[in-house]
């Protein structure tokens, strides 16, 4: 079992996302530390992929920048090793199936355990295909995180029953990116989740303001913020850590 549950104990979790290596790994390291120091409860680390089909333009461009800068899976493992000297909150990887498959799950997952990664989010691995990695994830105490979408309907209970770590509730149709409005009936989705599991659930996709984060966390157990943070890093580049810290603080306070 991983430490993911501790992120949700007696509090609403704030979960920031970072694209590793954008603009460089040293900035990612400082941003993650700034987020942890300012109240992040769980940290999502994105391993860039050349063709991220679930991402909107902001994270897609961050992926391209990071890859152009020469970041690789091995270098990100090293980043996590360094981060684990100071960062104690749970950390999960977010990437695409081919990154894990191509590296070899039998090499990737033991390394995750060794460096202190608690979970793995693969947006292109739906329930029907999770057997690809679920045994090996379990063997190395890495929670394979499941996602639920506004279109999941009757699939929600099936997914929730087998969920590990936390459930990632996708707030809206479409790809990642900030939205002015979230109109999905998330309350009903989370009701069905609660009837089927006691695993915590966090809402992501489209959350950029403290007000939105507060509303989403009130409905669930936490809020995940990606594009809004990646945009700050895109804007301030190597000066981003202090801005990220301030943003995380404002979001965490709103929860």
């Amino acid at each position: 079992m991983s430490d993911i549950r501790s992120a949700f104990e007696n509090k609403k979790a704030f979960i920031p996302f970072f694209t590793c290596g954008d603009p460089d790994l040293e900035t990612t390291r400082r941003c993650v530390i700034a987020a942890a120091e300012n109240g992040a409860d769980l940290i999502e680390l994105g391993i860039p992929f050349s063709d991220p089909t679930a991402e909107g333009p902001v994270i897609m461009e961050a992926n391209e920048r990071a890859l152009r800068g020469g970041v690789t899976t091995d270098k990100i493992f090293d980043l996590v090793r360094t981060l684990r000297k100071t960062v104690t909150v749970p950390m999960v990887f977010m990437t695409y199936v081919n990154v894990v498959f191509s590296y070899g799950a039998e090499r990737f997952l033991p390394t995750c355990k060794e460096i202190g990664i608690d979970g793995l989010i693969l947006p292109d691995l739906p329930f029907e295909e999770k057997e690809e990695f679920e045994d090996i994830c379990e063997r190395f105490d890495v929670d394979l995180i499941s996602m639920i979408a506004p279109t999941s309907h009757e699939r929600i209970s099936m997914i929730a029953k087998e969920a590990k770590g936390f459930l990632y509730i996708v707030s809206s149709l479409g790809v990642t990116g900030t939205r002015s409005e979230i109109t999905t009936d998330l309350g009903s989705i989370i009701d069905v989740v609660r009837q089927n599991t006691d695993i915590p659930c966090a809402i992501g996709f489209g959350i950029s303001t403290p007000e939105q984060a507060k509303r989403m966390a009130a409905l669930s157990d936490g809020a995940i913020v990606g594009s809004a943070i990646v945009r700050i890093i895109g804007q301030y580049k190597t000066d981003a850590p202090e801005h990220v810290g301030a943003f995380v603080k404002s979001m965490k306070e709103a929860l």
Binding site: P126, E129, A149, P150, T151, S152, L173
Partner: peptide, 23 residues
């Protein structure tokens, strides 16, 4: 419920949950 649409080891449905009901 297992993986569908296999040709030997190939194929499957590696797509975001959002699209699962559509396929």
């Amino acid at each position: 419920m297992g993986s569908k649409g296999r040709f030997g080891i190939h194929g499957g449905q590696y797509i975001p949950e959002t699209l699962m009901n559509a396929v």
